[in-house]
Structure formats: structure tokens, C-alpha cells
């Protein structure tokens, strides 16, 4: 590990300044991903700005929704009574991620900012445009079992590993950030980026911008929700792919639907067209099957991940069936 400076300001403004002024500084909260990246020499910050003293852990009612502080722990959010009542999909997604120990350390803001688990990104000797722009994408013609089927570029086919973010994008959350230029609100769907020609940038955050909270608006999705995560073992594994499904059903007719996938793209993948195809239809397997077909339009696989072209629609169907029956 490289030597680095460590500061722990108690005011957000001081933290923001510390990072805004120093291109080699970075925020640290739970550190569950950043510390690993530092140990392996993938992240080499010269200054860590510890934000754990900032008062950003609250989960509270705000403007017909929940405002979840950026430093709220994953486990605290998953166990929060208001979250479980108003946004059970979010609790399900959180509990599907990592292990109990990690959820007790990881924060909401940090979860969103975790980096891809692509093996080529993690090996300093292999090409990776995300880690070292211009070196090429090792996964493109390599072992790409875990990789993207949507929204990739020839520069990067990595996927975003977060479960929580899949639920948040489905629930139309908004990310609140404060930076050198003041505050702004970023719709969750615009928070993460597609790789394009700049896969080194995971998000649209600007230097020095600090996530302070996530707003999740109230909605009708309090009952018919499900987070279906497919993985090779029963717990503690990143998703081969996952589906967040939320339905508002009245008299067996779908009034509103939300659908997003994880493990298929460089960002949590909202399936808006598939959602629209569900509205007004009966909550039947046939309806779900049609929505899954809509969701898969434009998908393309690589050498080792062709299974996702079948697993994704199957998982969408299963998630919707389970949500409808919930």
C-alpha cells in the first residue's frame, strides 16, 4: 500500500474542499471496496478524507418520500422500519448484497460508488481501460462470463456490481450531492454512466462532489415487490444477474410497474419499455413473458456470457411472478 495522508473533518464543507482542491484525494466512508483497491495498488490516493464524522446517517421523511443519508449503513437501511414499510424492494436488494459483516460497514453512498468486479480491472498486469485508459479491454476477448449484455462499448464490457442501486434506479430515486459549486440533484438513472470512450468514469459526479443523501419517493410499490438475484452460491456472491421488480396490481390488472436489472450493464439497467408493456395488462405469466421479451431487445452477448440472453428473461419472469404473488 502506498503512503497516504488521512484527515477526518467534521464539516461537509471542509471535506469537500479537501477533495476538490487535491486531484489525488478521495473520500472514504466504510472503505469496504476502496481499502481493497488500495491494497492491490488499483487505487493510489495520496489523501483519504474520512467522512464518517459527517452527520449523514439519518433516514427520515422528506417531501412525500424517504431521505436516506449517504452514510446510513446498508444494514441500517435494510432493517429500517420506514424502509421496510414504504420501500420493501430496497430492503430486499440490500439484504441480497455482500455479507452481514460487510453490510454493517458499507454505506449507501459507498455502495453506489463501488467499482466493477471485473477480474481484468483487478489485475495490474492485464489490460483494462477502466483502470488505465488506453491499455485495452481484457475482458472483450477474454473470460467474460460475468460481463455486460447491454450498453457496453468496445472500450469496456464491465458491469456494475451493486444490488442496492438496482432497486434505487427502479424506484426513481434521486441522488443529492454537494460540491464546490453548491448542491444539485441527480436522477438515479443519470448517476452512473455507460462506458463509451471513458470507462474510467463510473459516475457523473464531479471532483469534490459529495453524496449527502438519496431521496426515494413514496409510491404504490409496498406489496408486490421482489428482488431476484441469481448467483452460483446461496449467499455472499456477486450476481450473475439480478432483477428488481415492483408491481401495483388492482383486480389482477397491472396499474404500474418498475423493472431494473443488475449484472447486465455498466450501470443499473432500468427497463422502461418493459415496464410500459406491463401496464394495463393482467398479471399473468404470459404478460411477464412478453415484458421479458421487450426487456431483452438490443441485448448482445460475448463468448462466455451468452447464457445471460436466456437467464435474463427467465429471471425477469421469475421476479415478476414472485412480485405478483407477494
Amino acid at each position: 500500500m502506498n503512503q497516504f495522508q488521512y484527515v477526518r473533518p467534521s464539516k461537509a464543507q471542509a471535506a469537500i474542499e479537501a477533495v476538490a482542491k487535491d486531484a489525488n484525494a478521495t473520500f472514504i466512508a466504510g472503505g469496504t471496496n476502496l481499502v481493497d483497491l488500495m491494497k492491490r495498488g488499483i487505487a493510489t490516493p495520496q489523501k483519504l478524507v474520512d467522512i464518517n464524522r459527517l452527520p449523514l446517517t439519518k433516514i427520515e421523511r422528506e417531501n412525500n418520500g424517504l431521505r436516506i443519508g449517504a452514510l446510513a449503513l446498508n444494514s441500517a437501511v435494510a432493517d429500517d422500519k420506514q424502509v421496510r414499510e414504504k420501500q420493501p424492494l430496497l430492503a430486499l436488494a440490500l439484504n441480497a448484497g455482500a455479507s452481514a459483516q460487510l453490510r454493517n460497514m458499507a454505506t449507501v453512498g459507498g455502495n453506489m460508488l463501488q467499482r466493477t468486479r471485473c477480474a481484468y480491472f483487478y489485475d495490474l498486469t492485464m489490460p483494462c481501460n477502466k483502470r488505465e485508459p488506453g491499455t485495452g479491454c481484457g475482458a472483450l476477448e477474454g473470460i467474460n462470463r460475468m460481463h455486460a449484455i447491454f450498453g457496453f462499448s468496445d472500450k469496456c464490457i464491465a458491469v456494475h456490481p451493486s444490488d442496492m442501486s438496482v432497486a434505487l434506479v427502479a424506484l426513481d430515486a434521486t441522488v443529492l450531492v454537494t460540491g464546490p459549486k453548491g448542491e444539485r440533484r441527480i436522477p438515479f438513472a443519470d448517476f452512473h454512466r455507460l462506458p463509451g470512450d471513458t470507462p474510467e468514469k463510473d459516475t457523473n459526479l464531479e471532483r469534490g462532489e459529495l453524496i449527502t443523501a438519496v431521496d426515494v419517493p413514496d409510491g404504490p410499490f409496498t406489496k408486490h415487490v421482489h428482488y431476484q438475484k441469481v448467483r452460483e452460491r446461496a449467499s455472499y456472491a456477486f450476481a450473475l444477474l439480478s432483477v428488481a421488480a415492483a408491481l401495483d396490481i388492482e383486480n389482477n390488472t397491472i396499474k404500474a410497474a418498475r423493472l431494473a436489472m443488475g449484472g447486465v450493464a455498466h450501470k443499473p439497467w432500468r427497463l422502461t419499455a418493459a415496464e410500459q408493456s406491463l401496464v394495463g395488462k393482467p398479471a399473468t405469466e404470459e404478460t411477464f413473458r412478453q415484458a421479458a421479451a421487450v426487456a431483452m431487445q438490443g441485448a448482445k452477448a460475448f463468448k462466455h456470457n451468452a447464457y445471460k440472453l436466456k437467464l435474463a428473461p427467465n429471471t425477469i419472469i421469475q421476479a415478476l411472478k414472485t412480485a405478483a404473488a407477494a
Binding site: R117, A119, Y120, Y122, D123, T125, M126, G138, E141, G142, I143, E232, R233, A234, S235, Y236, A237, F238
Partner: peptide
């Protein structure tokens, strides 16, 4: 454990990629 034959190097290098059973399995 998978090797990328182009590099002759393992791509599974930790317990995130190389899965062993957990209690739930």
C-alpha cells in the same frame, strides 16, 4: 479456477471469483 490463455494467467484470484460453499449452500 480459470486461466486466460492469452496471458497464461489466472483471472480467478480471490474468494469473490473463486467460490467455495458458504453455510447457506
Amino acid at each position: 479456477a480459470h486461466i486466460d490463455d492469452r496471458f497464461g494467467r489466472y483471472v480467478t484470484k480471490d474468494f469473490a471469483d473463486y467460490h467455495v460453499p458458504v453455510h447457506a449452500d
